[in-house]
Simulated assay, not measured.
Amino acid sequence: MILRKISVFTLVAALLAAGSMATTAATARSAVTLETVTDGLSYPWSVAFLPDGGYLVTERDGLLKFVSGEGHQSVVPGTPEVFAQGQGGLLDIVLSPDFKTDGTIFLSFSQGSTEGAGTSLFRARLVSQEGGYRLEDGRTIFTGNNKAYGGRHFGSRLAFAPDGHLFMTIGERGDGARAQDPSDHAGSVLRLTPNGEPASGNPSLERDGYRPEIWSIGHRNPQAAAVHPQTGELWTVEHGARGGDEVNIPEAGRNYGWPVISYGRHYSGEKIGEGTEKEGMEQPIHFWDPSIAPSGMTFVTGDAYPHWQGNLLVGALRGQHLARLELDGATVVSQEKLLVDLGERIRDVRQGPDGFIYVLTDSGDGRLIRLKP
C-alpha cells in the first residue's frame, strides 16, 4: 500500500471576489482529510474511475496511466501521438456510458499537422493485460479545424449527456475572433455521437455556414464541463483573460460572447470588445474577477459531504484552491475557497463512484488526492 494520509486541513470559508455577480455568504467550516492515492504524475490532466477499481489518469505529455487501488502506476499503451507543447497534449478522458459491456474510452488531445495543431477526439477499447491495461482498436474519430501554431487554448473537456451524445469543448487557440465564426470549431462546444459524427438535432444542422458539430459558440477556453445530475444540462467553466472566468450553461445555438463581451480585460489592462452585454449574446451565470484560472468541475451528489450536497466544485490553477459554489437552481448564492493550505494548482476535480471527491494537482510531481470528511 502506498496510499497515505497527508494531513487534516480545516478549511475556513473565504469569499471570492466576483464583481457585481458576487453575493454575501455566511462563514462556514469544512474539514476534510486529504489522502494521496498516488504521486509522481507528470502534469496530470484528467482522471476516470474504473468500475472494478482503480483509476485512469492522463498526463499532458502523452502518457495514459493506470493507477491501482493501492496507488501503483503502470503505462497504458496505445494512446495517440499528441502535440505536447504549452497547454497542448493528452487532455481529457471519459468512459463510455456502456463501458461495462463495450470497454470503450474516449480521449481528447491536441493533434499536430502541417497546418498547426488542433483539438481531436480518440476512441479505443481498454483491454486487461498482465500488470495493467492496454488500448486496442484505437482511432481518431473527430479532428477539429481549430488549427493554429503554438500551444494556447485547446480546451478540452468531454461529458456524456443522458441521451448518450458526447459534448466536447474546444478552445479558440488564442485568437478570439475565431470564436465568433460558426464555420470554425475554435471557441465552441460540440455535440457528437459516440462515433464522432454530428449529433442529430444540433442547431447548426439547420443554419447555413455552421459546422454541423457545433452546439454553441463564443467561448474562450473551456477547461471544465459536467452534466447537471438533476436537469441533464451541460454546464461549462471557461478561462477569461485578466478576470472574466465564466460559468455557463450552454444552450443550443446560443452565442456566449467572447471576445465581443467579457467581464475581464486584456492582460495589458485594455478593455475587451464592446463591454459586458450585447443583444443576442448570453450572460454567464457567474464570473470571477480577478481570475482563478478554472480547470475541472463536478457536482456533489454523494452523502459523504452533507453540507456540500448539490454544490458545484471547480478547480483553480492560478488561484491554487478548490472553489465550492452553493447553488439555488442556476444561481450561485455563495462560495468558499477550499484546499488553500495545500498550495497546489488544481487541474481536475471529480466525484468517484465511492462518493468521495478526488482532485489532481498540476505539476511535474502531480498527485491524485482523495478528500474524506
Rank of each mutant, 00 (worst) to 15 (best):
residue 237 V to F: 10
residue 209 G to W: 03
residue 342 L to P: 12
residue 306 P to N: 02
residue 327 L to A: 04
residue 67 V to R: 10
residue 48 A to K: 13
residue 309 Q to E: 08
residue 201 G to D: 14
residue 215 W to C: 03
residue 119 T to G: 11
residue 268 S to D: 15
residue 2 I to R: 14
residue 225 A to G: 10
residue 277 E to V: 05
residue 133 Y to E: 00
residue 57 V to Y: 12
residue 324 R to L: 11
residue 270 E to A: 14
residue 346 I to T: 06
residue 183 S to I: 08
residue 4 R to K: 13
residue 132 G to M: 09
residue 164 G to I: 13
residue 320 Q to S: 12
residue 211 R to F: 12
residue 79 T to K: 11
residue 329 G to I: 01
residue 290 P to T: 12
residue 69 G to F: 03
residue 296 G to R: 05
residue 130 E to K: 14
residue 273 G to S: 06
residue 3 L to M: 14
residue 341 D to H: 13
residue 131 G to I: 10
residue 239 H to Y: 12
residue 153 H to P: 02
residue 11 L to M: 04
residue 203 P to K: 12
residue 192 L to V: 01
residue 272 I to F: 04
residue 16 L to G: 07
residue 305 Y to K: 06
residue 338 L to E: 06
residue 252 A to T: 03
residue 221 N to V: 03
residue 348 D to T: 01
residue 291 S to D: 06
residue 33 T to F: 07
residue 329 G to V: 03
residue 133 Y to S: 02
residue 217 I to S: 09
residue 343 G to N: 15
residue 343 G to K: 15
residue 207 R to F: 07
residue 351 Q to F: 08
residue 326 E to W: 06
residue 36 T to A: 15
residue 284 P to N: 09
residue 309 Q to K: 14
residue 179 A to S: 15
residue 106 F to R: 11
residue 128 S to W: 00
residue 192 L to T: 14
residue 152 R to P: 03
residue 82 V to D: 11
residue 331 T to F: 00
residue 292 I to P: 01
residue 142 F to L: 14
residue 144 G to S: 11
residue 123 R to V: 10
residue 350 R to Q: 15
residue 160 F to A: 02
